[in-house]
């Protein structure tokens, strides 16, 4: 196609890419607001609202709760996701398709529906308002990404390596631990990081499952935004972005490093 269309698409594309990223960054300057209301960009910058965040136990406790819940959700979804991916390799393709559909279905069912259903069954069980309840709800939404990521890694494992290990007399569990596991580690790391972020950022299920004892940062933020418009919410947003960004960059960096290693290995 002629270069005029290419120029047009590059201009439009760049503008749209900017539209996708730049608005998110608007919360960063807002968090350094000095006044008691949000003005963008702020007239004067300060750490005033970061101090408010740290001084208010409700805010920093919610950050800690978010971290604990996310770790718990990550551990549960890594265990469930890895065993599921390993098991799905051993069944026939039609059975695998059914299992994949089942694992992915929580992403298709409207989240509000899952949220109220979990709220309804967890309340009488005493799981409502607990970190475990939140983590189980988050696992539902994080699991598909772990299964997909680990599944992709497993397909990349050279069967000859497994044969060699087995031929040398290693028991199945030892083959897994010493051969399969190191080879699928990038997939586990990617899936784990994603599970962590999915839990850390989750709002809808959390709104319904959180209680006074276990309230995550997004829930605290949601409740605050609905009542008042304070720069503390910009601080909370910045913290959510920072945690996500660190994990996002490390995953991208790790996966590109793994790719480079693989290429070097083939050469």
């Amino acid at each position: 196609m002629i270069s005029k269309t290419r120029i047009a698409s590059h201009v439009a594309g760049s503008v749209i890419l900017a539209f996708m990223v730049l608005p998110i960054l608007a919360v960063l300057p807002a968090s350094f607001e000095n006044a008691s209301y949000i003005k963008l960009p702020p007239d004067t910058f300060s750490l005033r609202w970061y101090r408010v965040f740290l001084a208010d136990p409700e805010w920093w406790q919610s950050l800690i709760t978010s971290g604990k819940v996310a770790v718990l959700a990550t551990v549960i979804s890594l265990f469930l996701g890895t065993t599921a991916a390993l098991g799905m390799q051993r069944v026939s393709p039609p059975a695998r398709a059914v299992l994949t559909g089942l694992v992915i279905s929580p992403l298709v069912v409207p989240v509000i529906m899952t949220a109220i259903a979990l709220y309804y069954v967890m309340r009488p069980l005493g799981l409502h308002g607990t970190m475990l309840g939140l983590a189980l709800g988050h696992t539902l939404l994080a699991l598909p990404f772990v299964v997909v990521n680990v599944g992709i890694s497993l397909r990349g494992v050279d069967a000859n390596c497994l044969r060699a290990a087995e031929g040398l007399g290693a028991a199945p569990l030892r083959v897994f631990r010493t051969v399969t596991l190191p080879l699928i580690l990038p997939g586990l790391a990617g899936g784990g990081a994603f599970a962590f972020v999915a839990s850390f950022d989750e709002v809808v299920v959390s709104i319904f499952l959180a209680g006074v004892q276990a309230k995550t940062l997004p829930v605290k933020m949601w409740e605050t935004i609905r009542v008042e418009f304070t720069p503390v919410t910009a601080v909370a947003s910045t913290i959510l972005i920072a945690v996500t960004l660190v994990l996002f960059i490390s995953v991208k960096w790790a996966s590109s490093a793994a790719r480079t290693r693989r290429v070097a290995h083939v050469d």
Binding site: V27, A30, I38, D201, I225, T244, F248
Partner: peptide, 17 residues
């Protein structure tokens, strides 16, 4: 990158803007 950021944060940013 935006896919990784919480929907809540992305929506809040638009309230500011």
């Amino acid at each position: 990158f935006p896919l990784w950021i919480s929907v809540l944060v992305r929506t809040f940013a638009w309230i500011l803007l």
